[in-house]
């Protein structure tokens, strides 16, 4: 189409006739700039099949990636559940990935502090592991008052899982149960 612009074939009247846009309100009237624009979905390096992260309908998503960046997320027409459709949340999920306020660093707030400070992830993980082991030891319950085994801690709790993967929930339940932490809950209780 662009090549035609430089010849007489690009003349508006001819374009009107050629495209059937006799009133000149459609394709014939578009500017060269508009015609040369391409959807991000065409220039993407790859398209990855995914699933919408909001409600539990499970709509199919197609994730368009360029230069290792997510450039667009659209409905997946192949999905027999959603047939290509997304609601406003699913359609906005590209912003979930690329939000300017998204946090990508570990933050730490010390007791009594008025602000967060950035912390190295490795250091933070070590601190959490230390606290986990200490709290577990401090709050350990071996037996109840009748001598029956409890083998647990009531000092460590967790909330969340309904937004996470099955594999993640599995590791969380497995690790916490082995550690004796039983107050493991998620949105299904809300």
């Amino acid at each position: 189409m662009a090549a035609k612009d430089s010849t007489f074939l690009g003349w508006p009247v001819l374009r009107q006739l050629a495209t059937g846009d006799f009133l000149g309100r459609g394709a014939a009237a578009t500017s060269r700039r508009t015609r040369e624009q391409q959807p991000r979905t065409v220039t993407a390096d790859r398209v990855v099949q995914s699933v919408c992260p909001y409600c539990a309908v499970g709509c199919g998503q197609k994730v368009f990636v360029s230069d290792e960046k997510v450039v667009q997320i659209e409905g997946d027409q192949d999905s027999p559940i959603s047939r290509g459709r997304l609601c406003p949340k699913g359609a906005a999920s590209e912003q979930l990935v690329n939000s300017p306020t998204r946090q990508t660093h570990v933050l730490y707030r010390a007791p009594g502090a008025t602000e967060f400070t950035r912390m190295d992830r490795d250091e933070a993980l070590d601190m959490v592991a230390d606290r986990f082991v200490e709290s577990r030891a401090r709050t350990w319950q071996d037996h109840d008052e009748h001598g029956r085994p409890l083998r647990r801690t009531m000092g460590i709790a967790s909330l969340g899982g309904a937004t996470l993967d099955n594999e993640e929930n599995y590791l969380i339940k497995k690790l916490f149960t082995a550690a004796g932490a039983i107050q493991i809950e998620n949105q299904a209780r809300i």
Binding site: A56, G161, A162
Partner: peptide
Amino acid sequence: GHASIQGSTDIPTLF
């Protein structure tokens, strides 16, 4: 209402 609230009940993060 959540993408895997069924999954987090099947493989429960529930007490």
